[in-house]
Simulated scan of single mutants.
Amino acid sequence: MMRCPNCHGKDLGRIGSQQYYCWTCFIEMAVEKNKLKVHQVEPDGSLSSLDDLFSEEERKI
């Protein structure tokens, strides 16, 4: 079971074939090469990377 790297919750929704959204802390994640790419959704709808806040180990799936 995949967990959110930020809040460690399991309340994830699928928004694309390899994209997920955490309903607890409101971040978006995409799976690339068995690693999560983590993004914050900005008010204008754009995405800002949060990858630098998490270690490689935390982003592994």
Rank of each mutant, 00 (worst) to 15 (best):
R14Q: 13
R14C: 10
G13K: 00
F26M: 15
M1V: 15
M1E: 15
F54D: 03
F26Q: 15
T24C: 13
S49W: 03
V31K: 04
W23Q: 15
P43V: 12
N6E: 10
V41M: 05
C7Y: 02
C22V: 10
Y21M: 14
M29C: 13
E56R: 13
D11T: 12
E32N: 06
E57Q: 15
T24W: 02
A30E: 03
S46A: 07
G45F: 12
E57C: 12
E42K: 05
G13D: 05
K33G: 09
R14P: 02
H39Q: 04
R59H: 04
Q19L: 01
H39M: 05
L12A: 12
M2A: 08
L47P: 00
K60Y: 11
R59I: 05
F54S: 07
S48L: 07
E32A: 12
P43L: 11
V41C: 03
Q18I: 02
E42S: 01
G16C: 01
G9W: 00
H8K: 14
Q40C: 05
L12S: 07
H8A: 08
Q18H: 06
K35R: 05
Y21K: 08
E32L: 14
N6L: 04
I15C: 06
E56D: 14
E58C: 11
Y21E: 08
K60T: 14
V41W: 01
K37W: 04
S17A: 15
E28S: 13
H8Y: 03
P43D: 12
K35V: 06
